[in-house]
Nucleic acid binder design. Structure first.
Length: 1048
RNA sequence: GGUCGAUUAGCUCAGUGGUAGAGCACUGCAUUGACAUUGCAGGGGUCACUAGUUCGAACCUAGUAUCGACCACCA
């Protein structure tokens, strides 16, 4: 006999271990079976399980367990992502916290990376163990890590192939620069947030004191302002970037500035004797209706300006260093400014390298943080009188002052025009600091080219999104895709397989300045390729003699040589690997094939590419799904990486708020599985807050919401909750009450099994549905197959909520509430044959229920399987019900429907008329047909028991004053005249008649409508007619009953 | 600005053309036999609004209102 209750803690980990040890999670590799592969979204190696993971992996596990039971060859590919920035951040933080004075830079690259690997071995990957707690049936023996050697091989091959095809290139571009991590990031890693900002208005004086007439007109062309100006007014939110302005742009159609287009104006900041003059140009970009209509163009620090500058050949001056401080390098400002001036006036040529070397930050701002510099620049310009001034709108005249009724109040004090406004500011999603557009050399993927077939694959249906409307999001992004910046100035990641050497070892610098820089690229997948590339290239140069290639210091290669004919002078040159690593998503993008052994032609690759379903949340469609599509199609001969993409919801708290540490509403899935005390929960939620001042608030809210912490609900309850809530919407609001509800469901199943055991149900014995004799047993078997068919259909359609609720409803409402009760008189009765059959059916139906529930609740079902019979195999290896034949007995179904209806009706009436629950009442059926008579005879015992009757007979007429209800053709008569009040009973009948009348009227009206009868499908019409007849019959019987009663 | 979505019972949410549903909460009754992590019975909805399509609309179409997410943005 099983225990009184299911204790998840006593079994979950034990069962999991048994599964794993028995190889249940490995693919069968049965060649006759259909392959089914799911690639896990590899969690960050630094990560720990959150509710999003729990949902994501529950869905995948349901699919995998379900398909395994349907006989497929299933691989659920597990693994982890090295998560470049996130991991490097964790280890750097640890270094800082450990108190030593070491940081990444002082340690050096190799030592630091070693440290990260150490950390990875020790504490990385806790998330995989947490997945096991959830019950994830991954193929752990094939676990991959994106930085593994074989993954790196794939990465290098992809890089090199794309490079050779021209789909990867290096370019100087304006990129999003994270000053905290000091690396470029892709635009996806930038979060634009609205913040309070200011817009300053400054005067850029025209060169040589020139003036023009500035005219503003209203919509009708009436002049509203006309004045002589010696400046052009510029509005900016980033005054510190004025130092790098290359021009001022106005719209070509803007008449206000037409007189001064082509003239020069002065940047009103920096030492007066070296103020730079910049041209006023036209470009389509400025919006005449915004600000002053004139835009300063700072190509090196703004994406829009960059485009304008490129179009107009305007020089771009980088002002900041990699930490976001104003540059302090290079020559003093005065010298540089003069050169810049000559460039601006077209008197000197420039090239990128020259411009990049020029530090145009005036000496007094050098070394300042960009925000400090902003303040200083604003102060300096204002002090000098170049801020645009307005009358103080807050000023109120003193009493007695004369104030003009309208128009500008000249008596008000003038103040600088600074608008307070909300501005969108870019932040690094990891660092949280303001992103700075920076002009740097980076590696890019030509995403536009790769996107085309990836878009086509979704259009053609080769890959389908579920729910399908997500394809719009996908198209939207893919069709506007920008070059993908893949280089990162980090250390933790796949180092870019590119080496830089000199075009010529000897041919001298004096011939060609370009040869002074190492810009010969060697792009190689591996050491051997690199070696031969370098050797071939330099050995072929005829002006030098190579003495030695020293590859021992890989990744830096040293070439020793001397010039031909001058052996006494020996030289060496380095060929060094690119310092940068690749964007983490570059390697994740290869996940569907790199994990299966590509570029080797492995069985895994042949069998499990393309995968069946990718399960993920919408927030990584761009990051990951799109990249896998592009790279998968490119490298797997046009074959998509997966056939379906199931996009699930985001898990929020019970109030629909995003779970976040600072809100203190994060629910750790493991806490729901194992339970947690209130104090521990509070501690968990308040430590490590980004804003520690929020701690008391978080504590208060937590104690109020969860005064007792969480009970241990077990993994099954959590999984079932997530499945039941996994609708195709966008959000799931997770409530702990719901988890408790599904834990109760597990208990229900457990107790049903206990009941079966107590009644000697037969487990471990299969039955033959065709040979069942009793209608109640035929019925429950039919219901079971209906249930499993509904579950299958729903899972196939990714309607996990429907699947869960079908299984739930069958188990609780059909099996427990009805079948177990119906079986009791048989199991306790004297009919040995009936009892035998029922014991067999009961055991078998329960076992099949375990199977049907197993994808959702693997632990409790496996334990029940294990403990109900001697077993040689696991529940998770059983065959899904209905896969090999089904059973549906319609007659038994109708018969049992009648039994259930009759019992329910009698119970309902008893309750309505307040018959004491314990009291047994006599019942007779009036007007019953032969079939009903037969049913009464067959089910008399059970009806009497369940409806608490002391008599159930057929009768010709009802005794006066009895209570009546109607089931089908018969009137059910409760002979309890003495127990009730005639007046109340009349009222009860009137109420029922009223209800019936309403429905009947509706149906009559509809059926009276010729158009309905003519146009509606025949079966709908027939159905409604039938329904009407039924209701009319019931109404007639009840009216008779009412009349009899009223006549008393 | 573009795209997608939401509005159904007190709460959280299912429901894609044919009798409005679930869980929780609520009300009444039930306590020794599988289960109080329970059972039985019940109350509760103008399906945001307007107009249309249709024999028939929570569902389809158009519009309105409110809320939300993502993307892109004016210096």
């Amino acid at each position: 006999m099983i225990d009184q209750r299911f204790d998840p803690k006593a079994h979950e980990q034990r069962i999991y271990q048994r599964w794993e040890e028995s190889g249940c999670f490995r693919p069968s590799m049965d060649t006759s079976a259909e392959p089914y592969a799911i690639m896990i979204p590899p969690p960050n190696v630094t990560g720990s399980l959150h509710m999003g993971h729990a949902l994501n992996n529950t869905v995948q596990d349901i699919l995998c367990r379900f398909e395994r039971m349907r006989g497929k060859n299933v691989r659920w590919q597990p693994g982890m992502d090295h998560a470049g920035i996130a991991t490097q951040m964790v280890v750097e933080r640890q270094l800082a916290a450990s108190g030593g004075n070491q940081d990444r830079r002082s340690m050096g690259r190799d030592a630091f990376i070693e440290k990260v690997w150490e950390w990875k071995e020790e504490s990385g990957g806790t998330i995989l163990n947490q997945l096991k707690r959830l019950g994830a049936s991954c193929d752990w023996e094939n676990t991959k890590f994106t930085l593994d050697e074989d993954m790196n091989k794939a990465v290098n091959k992809v890089f090199v192939d794309l490079y050779n095809e021209g789909l990867i290139y290096r370019a100087k571009r304006l990129v999003n620069w994270d000053p905290h991590f000091q690396t470029a990031i892709s635009n996806l890693e930038v979060e634009n947030k609205e913040v309070d900002g200011h817009m300053w208005h400054f005067k850029y004086p025209l060169a040589d004191g020139e003036t023009y007439t500035y005219v503003e007109k209203d919509e009708d062309g009436n002049v509203t302002l006309e004045e002589t100006r010696d400046y052009i007014s510029i509005a900016t939110t980033r005054p510190e970037t004025m130092l790098g302005d290359g021009a001022v742009a106005v719209h070509p159609s803007d008449a206000r500035y037409a007189p001064i287009v082509g003239k020069l104006c002065e940047i009103p900041v920096g030492p007066k004797e070296h103020r730079r003059l910049i041209p006023i140009i036209t470009d389509e970009y400025p919006d005449p209706d915004f600000g002053s209509g004139a835009v300063k163009i700072t190509g090196a620090h703004d994406f829009n300006d960059y485009q304008v500058a490129r179009r107009g050949g305007i020089p771009m001056y980088a002002l900041m260093d990699e930490k976001g401080f104003m540059r302090a390098d290079g020559e003093a400002y005065a010298a540089v400014a003069e050169v810049a001036q000559r460039i601006a006036e077209g008197k000197e040529d420039f090239d990128e390298a020259k411009i990049a070397a020029m530090n145009l930050v005036p000496d007094q701002y050098r070394g300042m943080d960009r925000f400090e510099a902003r303040k200083a620049v604003v102060e300096d310009i204002t002090a000098e009188g170049n801020a645009v001034m307005i009358a103080d709108p807050k000023w109120k005249p003193e009493e007695g002052d004369e104030v003009p009724a309208q128009g500008r109040d000249d008596t008000a004090p003038m103040i600088p025009l600074v608008e307070n406004k909300k501005i969108m500011q870019p932040f690094g999603d990891r660092s949280g600091v303001v992103i700075e557009p920076m002009l740097t050399d980076q590696w890019f993927v030509d995403a536009e080219t790769l996107a085309k077939p990836a878009i086509e694959a979704v259009r053609s249906g080769a890959t389908k999104f579920v729910p399908e409307n997500w394809d719009r999001t996908y198209y939207n992004w893919m069709e506007n895709i920008e070059p993908w910046c893949i280089s990162r100035q980090l250390w933790w990641g796949h180092r870019i397989p590119v080496w830089y050497g000199y075009e010529s070892l000897y041919r001298a610098a004096e011939d060609d300045p370009k040869l002074r820089r190492p810009q010969k690229l060697f792009v190689a997948e591996n050491y051997d390729d690199l070696k031969s590339a370098i050797t071939n290239f330099y050995s072929g140069q005829d002006d030098v003699v190579i003495e030695e290639f020293d590859f021992s210091g890989y990744p830096t290669v040293v070439v020793h040589y001397h010039k031909k004919g001058a052996p006494e002078f020996r030289f060496w040159r380095n060929v060094s690997q690119d310092e940068d690593v690749l964007d983490t998503w570059f390697s994740s993008g290869l996940w569907p094939f790199s994990t299966q052994g590509w570029p080797e032609e492995t069985d895994g690759l042949k069998t499990f590419y393309p995968g069946a379903t990718l399960v993920t949340a919408f927030d990584i469609i761009f990051f990951w799904v799109a990249r896998m599509m592009m790279l998968g199609i490119k490298f797997m001969d046009g074959e998509v990486p997966f056939k379906n993409v199931y996009i699930h919801a985001i898990v929020r708290d019970e109030n629909g708020k995003k779970m976040s540490k600072s809100e203190g509403n994060v629910i750790d899935p493991v806490d729901l599985i194992d339970g947690i005390e209130a104090d521990a929960l509070v501690a968990k939620r308040t430590t490590g807050l980004r804003q520690p001042e929020k701690a008391p608030q978080v504590e208060k809210a937590t104690r109020k919401r969860y005064p007792n912490g969480f009970e241990a609900y077990g993994a099954d309850a959590l999984r079932f909750t997530l499945a039941a809530m996994a609708t195709k919407g966008r959000d799931i609001n997770l409530s702990v009450e719901r988890v408790a509800g599904y834990r109760n469901f597990g208990t229900k199943l457990w107790n049903a099994t206990r009941f079966a055991q107590m009644n000697e149900a037969k487990f471990g014995v299969s039955i033959e549905p065709q040979s069942i004799d009793l209608s109640v047993n035929k019925w429950i078997v039919s219901e079971l197959y209906k249930c499993t068919a509904a579950v299958s259909e729903a899972i196939e359609d990714y309607r996990f909520n429907d699947a869960a609720s079908a299984a739930y409803h069958f188990t609780w409402d059909v099996l427990c509430d009805w079948y177990l009760e119906l079986s009791k008189p048989i199991l306790n009765g004297d009919d040995a044959e009936a009892k035998n059959e029922t014991q067999a059916v009961l055991g078998w139906v329960l076992e099949q229920t375990f199977v049907a529930l197993h994808p959702f609740m693997p632990f409790v079902t496996e334990v029940l399987w294990e403990q109900t019979a001697e077993r040689s195999d696991f529940l998770m290896q059983q065959t899904w019900p209905g896969l090999n034949g089904s059973f549906d007995d319609k007659d038994a179904g109708e018969e049992l429907d009648w039994v259930l209806k009759t019992i329910s009706q009698i119970r309902s009436v008893r309750s309505d008329v307040n018959v004491p629950a314990g009291a047994k009442v006599p019942v007779s059926l009036v007007g019953a047909n032969d079939e009903t008579g037969r049913r009464v005879a067959a089910h008399r015992d059970v009806i009497m028991r369940m409806a608490r009757l002391d008599k159930l007979d057929l009768a010709d007429a009802a005794p006066a004053g009895s209570v009546k209800t109607v089931v089908d053709e018969a009137t059910v008569v409760l002979e309890i005249a003495d127990l009730i009040d005639a007046g109340e009973e009349v009222a009860r009948l009137d109420k029922q008649l009223g209800k019936l009348g309403g429905e009947i009227t509706g149906l009559e009206k509809r059926l009276g409508n010729e158009a309905f009868v003519a146009k509606a499908p025949a079966e709908v019409v027939a159905e409604q007619r039938e329904r009407l007849a039924e209701l009319q019959g019931a109404r007639d019987k009840l009216s008779v009953a009412r009349e009899q009663l009223a006549a008393l």
